[in-house]
Structure formats: structure tokens, C-alpha cells
């Protein structure tokens, strides 16, 4: 049975923990709003880009299309780009992305493919480095970046495209968490190279508008595909940032609630032992008086 003093110390320590988690939750909530706005603001560009490219890709000649679209003709070497957060304390956010990536790595290895890993964000690197240190080809550090700009994504895309041109890999896949809501972030794997274009059915069945192209279609494709890689990475990073804050917010909300429950429990225990101590003292006094 812990002494009264021990209990008091524990209650105070849990109380200060609760203050910290509460503050972190509020900070995450504010950041989440900003991250969400950024993700939404970037959507029109990405959607338009995707629609135009999907349209172009449908009409492209499979033999002469840029390699970014038709691939290298093999799928032997896979590059996995794993985007996670720079910081922890955000629930299962980082782990769930890493888990998805790990499953993919194991599957590709079982199929006899070669896997290369490029991480964005410190947490993912730490977790993957333990098992797959020999597969690492690079790491992008964004810890100094306060707000992710298109320039960051552009740089990453540039690096990846240079590797692709250098024949370092055949297929590139981006891993990140899509933001669904504050309580739900979906780890997602998105193939960047060769490019695939998701299209909802309505758009696919709609009669294609016949455009005039300036310069010709293939030149536009060749120009737009590298940009599209950057756009997709940018969109992924923004979604990731929103997801991270959402995950942190709900994790900290949970932590705050747990701390509250713990304080209640400890307070009851504290009061009980205080009562017991008083009763004990009273009994001692009374029995002492009776003995006289």
C-alpha cells in the first residue's frame, strides 16, 4: 500500500502529463486545420492534371509513349517511397504506413524482385532501417521544413526521375496515409511510375473532347508526366501532413482522457487511505483513553 505522500506525488505527475497531452491536442487541432486547408487548396491542380493526363494517356500509342507511362518493360526492381512523419506521438500513424510498406517489401522479396527504399520523414526511416538497412537508397529530411511547399515535392520528384532515367528501378510506389477524417487515416500505396490514372466511370465513359494540341500530344505527355510525378508526391505529402495531425489529435485526446481517469482513480485511493489513517488514529486515541 503506497503511502499518502507517494499517492500525492503520482497524482501530481499524472496531472502535469494531462496538461501536456491536452496542449498537444490543441496544437494538433490548429495544425490540422491548416494542413487540411492546404490539402484542399492543392486538389484542383492535381485533379485537373490527372484528368488531362488520363485523357492523353488513353490516346497515346503504347509503342512510342514516354517511358514514364509505359514503363521500362520489366518490373524487376521496385522503388518504394515511404512517406512518414518527422515526429512521433501520433498514435499508429507512422507504424501503419510502415506496416503496409513492410508487407509489400516481403511480398516483392518472395516474388524474387529487387526492392529499394527511399524514405521521407525520420520515423519511417528509423523503423525500416532496423530490418532493411541494406535496401536503403536514400532519405529525404523534411524536419527543417515548417510548411511543405511544392518546391519540396519538386525536389524529391527530381531525384526520383533522375534515378529512373539512370535505370535504377522499374516501378516506383509511394506510401502515405490518406486523410479520411480525424479518426480515420488510410495507409495507401500509389504507383507513380509507370503512371496509372484513376478515373471514375462517369469520366471514363464521357465522350472525350477532341482537343487541338500544341505541341503535339506526345510532346505534351513528355512534358507533363514528370510534372505529374511531382504533383502526386506533393498531394501525398499534404495528405500525410493532415493525417499526421489528425492522428496526433485523436491520440492525444485519448491520452488526455486516460490521464483524467487515472487521476480520478488515484484520488479515490488517496481519499480512502487518508480516511483509513484518520480512523486508525482515532481508534488509537480512544483505546488509549479507555485504558486509563
Amino acid at each position: 500500500m503506497p503511502s499518502l505522500k507517494d499517492l500525492k506525488i503520482r497524482i501530481n505527475s499524472v496531472k502535469s502529463t494531462r496538461k501536456i497531452t491536452k496542449a498537444m491536442q490543441m496544437v494538433a487541432a490548429a495544425k490540422l486545420r491548416r494542413a487540411q486547408e492546404a490539402a484542399e487548396a492543392a486538389r484542383p491542380y492535381a485533379e485537373r492534371m490527372n484528368a488531362v493526363l488520363a485523357n492523353l494517356a488513353r490516346g497515346a500509342n503504347p509503342d512510342t509513349a514516354p517511358r514514364l507511362l509505359r514503363g521500362t518493360g520489366s518490373d524487376r526492381v521496385h522503388l518504394l517511397i515511404v512517406a512518414t512523419a518527422e515526429r512521433g506521438l501520433c498514435g499508429g500513424f507512422n507504424s501503419s504506413i510502415v506496416r503496409l510498406a513492410r508487407e509489400r517489401i516481403e511480398r516483392l522479396k518472395a516474388e524474387g524482385k529487387q526492392v529499394k527504399i527511399l524514405t521521407i520523414g525520420r520515423k519511417g526511416r528509423e523503423q525500416l532501417k532496423r530490418e532493411y538497412a541494406d535496401l536503403f537508397v536514400g532519405h529525404v529530411d523534411l524536419s527543417g521544413v515548417k510548411r511543405i511547399g511544392y518546391a519540396n515535392a519538386h525536389e524529391i520528384a527530381h531525384d526520383i526521375l533522375a534515378r529512373f532515367e539512370g535505370g535504377e528501378f522499374d516501378v516506383a510506389t509511394l506510401f502515405y496515409a490518406r486523410f479520411k477524417s480525424v479518426i480515420s487515416q488510410v495507409p495507401t500505396a500509389q504507383q507513380l511510375i509507370p503512371a496509372v490514372f484513376e478515373q471514375d466511370e462517369a469520366a471514363a465513359n464521357a465522350p472525350a473532347v477532341v482537343y487541338d494540341y500544341e505541341p503535339e500530344e506526345e510532346a505534351i505527355l513528355a512534358d507533363l508526366l514528370p510534372r505529374s510525378v511531382a504533383t502526386q508526391i506533393f498531394a501525398g505529402l499534404l495528405e500525410n501532413a493532415a493525417s499526421e495531425q489528425g492522428a496526433r489529435m485523436s491520440a492525444m485526446d485519448n491520452a488526455t482522457r486516460n490521464a483524467g481517469e487515472m487521476i480520478d482513480k488515484l484520488t479515490i485511493e488517496y481519499n480512502r487511505s487518508r480516511q483509513a489513517a484518520i480512523t486508525k488514529e482515532l481508534i488509537e486515541i480512544i483505546s488509549g483513553a479507555e485504558a486509563l
Binding site: 492523353l56 487541338d212 510532346a219
Partner: peptide, 10 residues
């Protein structure tokens, strides 16, 4: 101008 023919250009 308004009613321009569909055109895609870089």
C-alpha cells in the same frame, strides 16, 4: 476569347 475551340498547350 469566349467560344475558343478546345485546345491544350504547354
Amino acid at each position: 476569347l469566349p467560344n475558343h475551340a478546345p485546345l491544350l498547350t504547354t
